[in-house]
Simulated assay, not measured.
Amino acid sequence: MTQLDWTKHLTGGRKHTFTTNEVILRPGMDREHFFVILQGRARIHLQHDQKELTLAYLKTEDIYVSHSRAWVSAESDLLIERWPLAQFKRLLSLEPMIALQVIQELGHLLHNTINVIEDLSFRSVSQRLSRALLLSSKHQQSESIDLPYNMQELAQQLGTSRQTLSTEFNQLIKQGLIKRLSRKKIKLLQPERLSNICEGFVS
């Protein structure tokens, strides 16, 4: 039995393919449906005046209920299956554990959204960048870290422009706090000073 066996209870599903960066959902589109990621990865984000702010990512087997005004775009070539929202209510009566999965995913989205609000409200771009580097170092258990995103994607994660982020990156390099090993690999030279920046002890 696979994790997607619950789909056998549903009728009226339609599969859709999307290419990288193609929009799956945007404000104004029909929101009376839900979908599951069958293959690939999607990004939940806000968008206004050519600015984007990433809230969370969806991976294979994640369920998304189109309940918010957020945009959803394909982060890679993507395959989804979509059903009318009425089918979701039926699914919950047959597979109540699905509700737990959806609640967990909503909790993850809320957690990320609160982090974004805190960052934008209380932390400078330098603090946000330092925090992101320290978190990556902690997750990878190394001071030499692989950046999971390119500069544009990281800027969208941190709620700033690519140009501003590049300036902050170069400033950390000039200060001897980090060293660029390759296009997507960074070494933290002075993590304690990055922690001070993150906490607002230094500018």
Rank of each mutant, 00 (worst) to 15 (best):
M1H: 12
T2V: 07
Q3K: 10
L4S: 12
D5G: 08
W6R: 01
K8F: 10
H9R: 05
H9E: 08
H9Y: 13
K15V: 10
K15D: 02
T17Q: 11
N21D: 12
E22A: 09
V23A: 14
L25G: 05
G28T: 05
M29K: 02
D30W: 03
E32W: 10
E32M: 09
H33G: 05
F35T: 00
V36Y: 03
A42E: 00
I44S: 07
I44G: 04
L46P: 08
D49P: 00
E52D: 06
E52C: 06
L53G: 00
Y57F: 14
Y57H: 14
K59Q: 15
K59G: 12
D62H: 06
Y64I: 15
Y64T: 03
V65A: 02
V65P: 03
H67I: 12
R69N: 11
W71A: 04
V72M: 03
D77E: 14
D77K: 07
L78D: 00
L78P: 05
L79C: 04
L79M: 11
W83E: 05
W83D: 07
L85F: 03
Q87T: 09
R90E: 15
S93P: 03
L94E: 15
E95S: 07
P96T: 07
Q101G: 01
Q104S: 10
Q104V: 02
E105K: 13
L106Y: 13
H108C: 03
L110A: 06
L110C: 09
I114R: 06
V116H: 09
I117C: 11
D119K: 14
R123F: 15
R128P: 00
R131G: 12
A132S: 08
S136Y: 10
S136L: 12
S137C: 14
Q140L: 08
Q140I: 11
Q141D: 10
S142Y: 04
E143R: 08
E143N: 13
S144D: 15
I145M: 10
D146Y: 14
N150W: 11
L154P: 04
Q156N: 13
L158P: 11
G159W: 08
G159D: 06
T160V: 01
T160H: 02
S161A: 04
Q163N: 08
T164W: 01
L165G: 02
S166C: 03
N170T: 10
N170L: 08
Q171T: 10
K174D: 14
G176S: 10
G176C: 01
L177Q: 04
R180L: 07
R180M: 06
S182E: 05
S182D: 03
S182C: 08
R183Q: 14
K185V: 06
I186T: 00
I186K: 02
K187A: 10
L188Y: 07
L189P: 01
Q190C: 13
C198G: 05
G200H: 12
G200V: 04
S203G: 05
